[in-house]
Design a protein around this nucleic acid. Structure first.
Lengths: 350, 350
DNA sequence: GTCGATTGCTAATACGTATTACCATCTATG
DNA sequence: CATAGATGGTAATACGTATTAGCAATCGAC
């Protein structure tokens, strides 16, 4: 046990200033309601004593009494500072920190959450969730059961990324993947592409479903719009599939797959985007080295972080009305991997 | 206000299980002292009720009563997730998170600390320091006055990086810059260098002083060992100085300065390390693009992060005896910028 | 059968703050 | 001068947990 030398409390201040503890509290909170009145001299005396002693309110006791703390919990389903997906998480945290600082909130990172079945759990014996006024959930896949529980308990939270209902609507700040993918499809169609393919990952996450939905909705005008899974298949096999159906543009969910596919295409003596256009659907989740500037879109991660804090704060202080769900637009990135399909037949005949 | 539907408390459990609140607390804390006895059946009954209700202790009340929380505060004198020095801070946080997870601790980031005179302040009206059991201080320059106060208050803390006494010894986990610079000097001397120069920054921080100390101590065998300040001078001027004194190797505190100096040298038709060897003294604090692989050393940042949590934990639980001060060795990095001084005269004559 | 020891639990209290109900005292009013 | 209202403050209590002193019941021993 740390030999804590008994810190200064309101009682001490009260004794020194010759008032009651309640008065100290009232002064500290600047209460000026109709039924709370403090004489200016008394107020000054108390404030002076506070300044002299360097008193600062115990946030724990404050929270226990007032149930509100200006602390925002951040729960990451993967380590917050991983070596691998670091580049993916970082912008979110940056935005979160920025807004938290502006709002005067501290951030509580729930690093103690134990890993069960290969995934962190919010709820466990001894979770310290309630230290925070609310919390932000970060992670590609969020356990629906835990969202249920949060909803049931009425604990304020916001998910970063759109989430399906879980025992009620889920407050979130997400990216509008459907619209972004739709725009990309539009771009491809405008360039003359008619035979499209969408390359799945196995992810069941909403972020994945939204992209597919956007593809399906926008690709109705195409001659052919197929779905292919990339799971368990190497780039060569995928490429074979694409060429067999005379596909001219591939929409690739997973960034690493896009890179592998581009490499495979080149190895075969074909060009990107000359013979095959390849579009990526969001920033890489793990850093993959490549010299290609892919055409695709950028997820507004910093802004998502910022707004998630903003939304959470409004939920906590009760100023939010209704369910808070925001979808932010993604920014299209014009790279070098979307061409025109003209040379396709030539390439296929080789 | 969030319409909190009154969460489950120990009182509720007690009522359901037909025992007193105290008993619930005793069961929860697995107390088995001589003077605390709970019948196995009672214990089971309580535990069953807890499982059924999904009760979890309120960390705030727990902390208020027991003054200990398994929460570690992290105070960064610069934003924890900056765009700029991100690469510098990140490894520390990574190590901190890793060990905190292992130790079952949560991390509280004091993002709310207001900026006064261009620097964040730990102590301010309404600081929430005491929510944590202790805290880790991160930042190149740490305000000595705040260290004083921490020492005076007896609040457990650990600085990342060596610190001078501040009203008492400061617990820290630092990097042994003096030794690392000393080794580099030894390396240079072994290669035949006799005319050395040390390029200062204006930093008054301990990390800077330690490097200089290491240089001075090891450079006694040199023919010439000068200090030059880089503050307010461009690389050209510095280079002039170096060449004028026939310096063959420069020890450069600031990474960006090293890069600039190398560029200036080349621009003048001289080579690195042919005509001038340039050694860097630690990882860049801000990312600077360069194609040069500098010889220097690496700061064990991840390990410093890990050990800082370890030390703090031992201070908090009282198992630490005496003042905790650790200096970790830096790893020498053999790059391409340390040569032999043979060609020096040739170069100077050009 | 009495006395001490042991067992199993509870009542009371502390932690430090916020809030509310209420009590003095003073002032204006008729 | 009685009364109503305004003024300035305090006592009491709640928040949810941990801890400790101590009570009641049972048991063992002689």
């Amino acid at each position: 046990m740390p030999s804590t030398p008994r810190r200064v409390t309101q009682r001490d201040i009260a004794r020194l200033a010759g008032v009651s503890q309640a008065t100290v509290s009232l002064v500290l909170n600047n209460r000026a309601d109709a039924d709370v009145r403090i004489a200016p001299e008394t107020r000054d005396r108390v404030l002076r004593t506070i300044a002299e002693t360097g008193y600062a309110a115990d946030p724990v006791a404050r929270r226990l009494a007032a149930r509100f703390n200006r602390i925002i919990g951040v729960f990451t389903y993967e380590p917050a500072f991983p070596s691998g997906s670091r580049d993916f998480f970082h912008p979110f945290l940056l935005g979160i920190e920025e807004y938290a600082e502006r709002a005067g909130c501290d951030l509580l990172l729930f690093t103690s959450a134990p890993v069960v079945d290969g995934r962190r759990r919010i709820f466990h014996q001894d979770n310290r969730l309630r230290l925070a006024d609310g919390c932000i959930l970060l992670g590609q896949e969020i356990d629906a059961a835990e969202l249920h529980r949060l909803n049931r308990d009425g604990f304020p939270y916001v998910a970063v990324g759109r989430r399906d209902d879980a025992g009620g609507p889920v407050p979130y700040v997400g990216a509008d993947y459907a619209a972004a993918v739709g725009e990309l499809v539009g771009l491809a169609l405008a360039r003359g592409h008619r035979r499209l393919a969408y390359l799945n990952t196995e992810l069941t996450a909403e972020s994945s479903a939204d992209r597919r939905r956007g593809f399906v909705a926008a690709a109705t005008a195409a001659e052919s719009a197929r779905h292919l899974t990339t799971v368990g298949r190497d780039a060569e096999a995928i490429l074979d599939d694409l060429l067999a159906e005379a596909t001219t543009v591939a929409f690739v969910e997973d960034f690493a797959t896009a890179v592998a596919l581009a490499l495979a295409t080149r190895r075969r003596g074909l060009g990107v985007p000359g013979d095959l256009s390849i579009l990526t659907l969001g920033d890489p989740t793990v850093p993959v080295p490549t010299d290609l500037a892919f055409t695709g879109f950028r997820i507004p991660r910093e802004e998502m972080g910022r707004q998630s804090v903003e939304v959470l704060a409004s939920v906590i202080d009760g100023s939010a009305v209704g369910v808070q769900q925001r979808l932010l637009p993604c920014e299209l990135v014009e790279g070098d991997t979307l061409g025109t399909p003209d040379r396709r037949s030539t390439a296929a005949e080789r």
